[in-house]
Simulated scan of single mutants.
Amino acid sequence: MKIPKRIQPLIDDGIVDDVLRQLMSGKEATVYVVQCGDQIRCAKVYKEASKRSFKNAVLYNEGRKVRNGRSARAMQKGSKFGREQQEEIWQNTEVDTLYKFAAAGVRVPTPYGCFGGVLIMDLITDDEGYAAPRLNDVTLSQDQALSHHAKMMDYVVRMLSVGIIHGDLSEFNVLVDEQGPVIIDLPQAVNAAGNNNAKKMLLRDVNNMTQYYSQFAPSLVSTRYGEEIWAIFETGELSDKTVLTGQFVDSEVAADVDNILNEINAAREEELDRLERMTNHD
C-alpha cells in the first residue's frame, strides 16, 4: 500500500521496512500493520490536535507536570511552540504509561518507541495470528464475562496502585486474545493524585466495563467496584494485592467513613476466607 507520510521517515531510517495495511482509524490516531525486520508490529500514527476529535482534552491534561519553564509558559500562551510541546507530552504519555502498566502487571502492547508522532508497538493477535478483536466485537459466556471482568478490575487496581487512571476505558479500548483482555489507547491517562477529575474518571472507567460485561453476566449490575476501589485508594492501602468484593455502602454523614471502610474490610476478609476454602477444597 502507499506509505503514509508520517511513516516514511521511519522507513528511511530503517525502523520500519514496510507498511502492510491499515488496521483501524480512530478519534486520535490511525493504526497500521507494519513489517519491522522479521517482526509484524503496529504503528500508531497520532493525528494532529486540530484533526483530533478527542473531547475535553483539558480535563486529562490537568496535573501533568512540565519541568521546562519555557515550555510551560508557551503551552499556557498557546503559541505554536507551546502546541508542539503539548502534542509531544500527549504522545509521550502513552509510551510512559505503557511501560508503567506492564511493570505493574497490566497486559498492554509492548512499546518500541515513539518517533515523530508514530508509536511502534506489538501487534496483539488472536490464536490464528490475525489482529485481535476489540472487546466490543466479542461474544462471551457468563463464566468468561465474570472472569474477564474480574481481570479488568484487577488491572484497574494495578493501574491506580501506580497512580494512574486510564481515563477512557471502554469496550472499544480493550482487545481480546486467547489469554484474555489487553488494554490499549493510553494518551489520555490521568494522574490520580494531581487531577481533580480523577475520581469521576475512575468511576466512569469501572462502570463502563461493568456495564458491558453485565450483558453477559447480569449479576454484575449490582456491584460497586468503582466506589470500593476509590475508597481503598483514599486510605493509602490500595495495592496489587488488594482483594475486591464489589460491595460498597454509601455514607449518609461524613462521620460514617470509618464504618464504611470497616464494612469493606470485613467483606474483603470474607472473600479471602472463601478463596482459601476453595483452594483447600481443590
Score class of each variant (00 low, 15 high):
155 Y>R: 02
55 K>T: 12
115 F>E: 04
141 S>M: 06
270 E>L: 15
249 V>W: 08
22 Q>M: 15
205 D>Y: 05
134 R>P: 01
74 A>K: 06
212 Y>I: 04
118 V>D: 01
102 A>M: 10
211 Q>W: 11
212 Y>S: 05
238 L>P: 00
181 P>A: 03
228 E>C: 02
259 N>K: 12
71 S>K: 13
272 L>Y: 03
39 Q>H: 11
115 F>S: 05
63 G>D: 08
218 P>K: 07
145 A>E: 02
219 S>Y: 09
55 K>E: 14
146 L>Y: 08
72 A>M: 14
4 P>R: 01
135 L>I: 07
251 S>D: 12
135 L>V: 04
85 Q>W: 11
66 V>L: 14
261 L>N: 08
23 L>F: 07
137 D>T: 10
27 K>S: 15
121 M>N: 04
23 L>P: 02
275 L>F: 12
170 S>H: 11
64 R>W: 14
135 L>T: 00
154 D>S: 12
243 V>N: 00
126 D>A: 05
176 V>C: 08
91 Q>R: 11
158 R>A: 03
112 Y>Q: 12
39 Q>D: 14
128 E>F: 09
18 D>F: 08
127 D>G: 04
54 F>E: 12
83 R>W: 06
212 Y>E: 05
1 M>I: 12
64 R>E: 08
118 V>F: 00
76 Q>E: 15
124 I>L: 02
82 G>A: 07
92 N>E: 14
9 P>G: 03
34 V>E: 02
21 R>T: 10
281 H>S: 13
148 H>G: 00
62 E>Y: 09
57 A>F: 13
149 H>L: 08
224 R>D: 07
234 E>L: 11
229 I>E: 00
213 Y>P: 01
276 E>P: 00
27 K>L: 08
138 V>D: 00
195 N>Q: 10
35 Q>A: 14
194 G>E: 15
159 M>L: 10
4 P>F: 03
252 E>M: 12
173 N>H: 11
123 L>A: 03
78 G>P: 05
251 S>M: 15
22 Q>A: 12
226 G>Y: 02
87 E>F: 15
36 C>N: 07
230 W>I: 01
140 L>F: 12
277 R>H: 05
120 I>E: 00
105 G>F: 03
97 T>I: 13
217 A>M: 04
176 V>D: 00
272 L>Q: 15
136 N>R: 11
47 K>G: 09
233 F>L: 01
78 G>W: 09
17 D>C: 07
120 I>P: 00
168 D>S: 14
256 D>Q: 15
43 A>P: 12
272 L>R: 14
246 G>Y: 02
201 M>D: 05
217 A>W: 03
